[in-house]
Nucleic acid binder design. Structure first.
Lengths: 337, 337
DNA sequence: CTGTTAGCGCATTCAA
DNA sequence: TTGAATGCGCTAACAG
């Protein structure tokens, strides 16, 4: 049972042909006689011959494999993203090597190293939060491995980045709150190091300005996005003398944590304090006490674009040359149960 | 910039040595002179030499890659599982090629074909629900690719399967319901073709028996696990003349759908009708209107065991020879908010 | 139409 | 202590 899979050589020997003839016959090369072709194909069939992809890849100096590194597959945003990437990869006859950084910078760089050593043909990356060292970019560049960032992207302009433009959603959120009569609107933001945090903040300020509401720095909170910190921040928020009546959360996860605190403090969700968050969990529609609305960032669309561009690069097709591609986010109102 | 990565030959040429000497020097082979070794290492360093894994794998007739095929990464059960597998793979210096079947049998077989063609060293599979054709098992066997199943496993004894033994959790669930005074306990089960459904059913019957409650066939429902069907079934359940006061759901997803229907019909969760489900969503703790309890199936443990065994097979280590390994499930009571 | 040859990058056996 | 030669499976340039 431990018989090695048949090879071209094997077939050639049995048929007293050369491997090249066999190779060509199998791919219907016009210069091979019909009879020979048939004989070869017949035996190949019998032996269950299958070309050894690894050998072919090796010869062609390609791996037909891309690496995808994401913070966390358990976030629906990323599981949606990987599905989109997988589909595109399948179309292109590529396989996907997966890596989860778990938002740990060290883990992330280990994964990237492995991918580089495996000489994947390209990489799609959504960086771990709090990543501070981007040396891997140069390292990959030296190895001629193209990389495309999406969603969580580094704050530098020499790389290709696909992002969601958070401002439209943020502005809509504030408009919505204002039209509901809120004027004490807080923001629970993420780490300053994230581009995504900066953009949320900008959108927040612009949205308030547009509605002639002065920015109150006391209403701007920063969490490291851990459950504890989300809760800590929310407790602070609630304790404010002039408590905000509306809160925009960095993400749906933050909303979950903060709403929990609100409830524990006896506040009624979307009555005593209203919530809008980012990400648009698919699960919201199933549960009560959800935010009024959630801002969709179109994970699938971002990821697909990232994959499209990566394969353009890999196949050295013409690309638009754009380095930063941004899709507008969009506020989605959630039905109240 | 399009310079190829340095090779052994490159180094050898520059140093006027043979590739074999260079090869050996780089791995501190004792028979190479210290001076030569140093010279080689120095130049390798300067050139940023890195062995070409692909070539090594090719030569060794291995790929150092395993395939993992799961129904759906967006289910937390599976994202937990893949993390466990990834960790083990990293330990063993393997990479993971990922595939999502999306519970589509055709898609699943396409993925398995691809993995086979890529000659991965092994496969871990949780089969798509409704899979009816298991020919791929023979196909992989012929290709000498070991495969380990977990969680959703085929109903045949010639393969290695890691499962969660659902009975303990199911019995606990019924005990819990009974001790709360319920005796009209329904089961919303999945497709009959799933071993997992059969086991739930058995556990259900045994649990009732143990508590001297006769089995009422009207209280046993089968859903294809789609949202629509879950809802349809729940509507039927509610419409029963002697409506069950407690429901055990195939999964947390089923619970979400059915609880929604219950609420729409004006029933109060865990008062008019109580729920227990399988899987133990991490998110339950954040939301209201959740089941009384959820049955933990220990995704991580199952997946890790699957990976352990797979690597034992790949490395031809001794294995226990057990074909079916089963971990008891366990009822987890969920805090009421 | 078909065969010979060379080579992808590396490890390894055998010879020097 | 080092080098030459071989081969993993396949493709392709070149020769017949």
């Amino acid at each position: 049972m431990k018989n090695a899979p048949p090879t071209l050589k094997e077939i050639a020997k049995r048929l007293k042909l050369s491997t090249s003839t066999v190779s060509r016959a199998l791919k219907d090369h016009p210069s091979i006689g019909l009879v020979t072709t048939m004989r070869v194909k017949k035996l190949a069939e019998e032996l269950n011959y299958e070309p050894n992809n690894r050998a072919i890849f090796f010869k062609q100096q390609k791996t037909f494999t891309i690496g995808v590194v994401l913070p966390n597959l358990s976030e629906s945003f990323f599981s949606t993203a990987i599905s989109a990437i997988e589909n595109k990869a399948t179309e292109e006859d590529y396989t996907v090597i997966l890596g989860q950084s778990l938002d740990d910078e060290n883990r992330q760089s280990r994964i990237l190293e492995t991918l580089r050593k495996h000489r994947v043909d390209g990489i799609i990356l959504s960086v771990a939060k709090n990543t501070s060292n981007f040396d891997f970019i140069d390292s990959l560049r030296k190895s001629n491995i193209p990389i495309v960032f999406f969603d969580c992207v580094p704050d530098r302009e020499d790389v290709i980045r696909i992002v969601s433009d958070l401002k439209p959603g943020m502005m809509e959120a504030i408009d919505t709150f204002v039209s509901c009569g809120h004027n004490r609107i807080a923001l629970i933001n993420g780490p300053q190091t994230l581009l995504a945090s900066r953009e949320r903040l900008e959108g927040y300020k612009q949205g308030l300005e547009k509605n002639d509401i002065p920015v109150n720095e006391d209403y701007i909170f920063v969490s490291d996005l851990s459950e504890e910190d989300n809760k800590r921040v929310m407790a602070e928020l609630i304790a404010l003398p002039e408590r905000p009546s509306a809160v925009i959360c960095f993400s749906d996860y933050v909303a979950l944590d903060t709403m929990k605190v609100a409830k524990e403090k006896g506040l009624s969700i979307n009555q005593d304090v209203s919530f809008i968050s980012f990400s648009n969990f698919p699960i919201w529609n199933h549960i009560e006490n959800k935010p009024m609305a959630s801002i969709e960032q179109f994970a699938g669309r971002q990821a697909q674009k990232a994959a499209d561009i990566l394969f353009d690069l890999i196949n050295e097709r013409e690309t638009s040359g754009e380095k930063l591609i941004s899709y507008p986010s969009q506020l989605i109102h959630l039905d109240t149960l």
